[in-house]
Design a binder for these strands. Sequence first.
RNA 1: GGAGAGAUGGCAGAGCGGUCGAAUGCGGCGGUCUUGAAAACCGUUGGCUGUUAAAGGCCCGGGGGUUCGAAUCCCUCUCUCUCCGCCA
Length: 425
Amino acid sequence: MLQANYIAQNRDAVVAGLQKKHFKETDKVDQIIAIDEKRRKVKYDLDEVLAQQNSIAKEVGQLFAQGKRDEADVLKAKAPVLKEQGRVLQEQLEGLEKEQHELLISLPNLPHSSVPEGRTPEDNEVVKEVGEIPTLADTAKPHWELMEQYGIIDLALGTKITGAGFPVYIGKGARLQRALVNFFLDNAITAGYKEINPPLVVNTDSATGTGQLPDKEGQMYHATIDDFYLIPTAEVPVTNIHRDDILAEADLPIKYCAYSPCFRREAGSYGKDVRGLNRLHQFEKVEIVQFQTPDKSYETLEGMVKHVEGLLQQLELPYRILRLCGGDMSFASALTYDFEVYSAAQKRWLEVSSVSNFETFQSNRLKTRYKGHEDKKTQLVHTLNGSALALPRIVAALLENHQTAAGTVRLPKALHSYLGFEEIG
RNA sequence: GGAGAGAUGGCAGAGCGGUCGAAUGCGGCGGUCUUGAAAACCGUUGGCUGUUAAAGGCCCGGGGGUUCGAAUCCCUCUCUCUCCGCCA
């Protein structure tokens, strides 16, 4: 969430930023500024009335203490008028605050200056491409056929138990999941991230804090009896660890990693790109999260990108890094790098990670601040997060890219000790 | 799920309806002393809003009410603890 006074002071830059993100309702900016002026005025008037009420109350108390009942009663008679004035102003203020908050919360984050112009995924900037794209034998199969052939991941069975998009991992398939999770976690821990095992279900405050509510309400599974949401990513519970906290600058950066299943309704996404493991309602992911001071957050973002690169290199998968254009970025992000892995049998790039700097967009909702050790000032932290990594598409790419001419799948060396086997076949 | 007790500043813990944004202790920060440290002593030490700076306003779990005046009284919700029940 952007801050009203920032908007008022940087009106033109805010409008330009929103336009870069292809946010249409830029007139909301001027509305917010106008409401803010009105709000301040009403607040000032209300404070005056309250101050008068306070002083009368104090005087009445003193008069009573001195036994001057009559004078006290005279003063008391003045209170109802003020009270009524206060009530009216209070109502106005609450109305304005609500109106302003609704406008503010509907605005996306502003893009960083390095974000390329553009509207669609085609406009994303390819930052780098690494690794050889394998040439497979003519007999090569897409991952959904390999899954079925070796009986390691069963989508139909998941449909029977739950519904479409809830795979059942079996035997070496299950083992592969567990190996990848441990591999990712161990790498993160080595890189200095503290492991968190968070709740998989969160309350509305948490879902609002990281920006899932109100904008993505329909994308989360909602346990209505208790008003809890199934997490779409570990980012939600982990970032909320520091909701309403004031951190010490000396403790920053704070680095957390967390494994969790992720639940996404994916309402409205059907079609050809969702076959096999490409899009699921439940999947597993290791997430990395950092809290950092504003002056170092972009440095931190680069470090997180490096970390994800290291994982993909160890998994021997060809990948490319995209800097997302304004129109393709998420609501809350200021700068996002997407990682895509080449899926050799599908002959297409699959998004496997998204690493973002949210600057103060989340922390302003979360009220996660830090106190500087030099200037003692309390200000909002920057939050960052990234997948490191999400499993299904990695599994898809591993199966497809590492299939041999004989039809078996040779898994990368980095996983051998985690797997207890080297080959599926 | 049933019965009872409670929720106050970083922590612990006071708080007759007015002088309480809140005693006291610990912790933190600054200083005196010391070669340095400890101890001792002195000072300082919440958040939000607002302003050039102030003043002012709001915050004692959340919401509502009574009152000229609420941390203190009433209602309600949430959470925590103890006992009982159920249970991995």
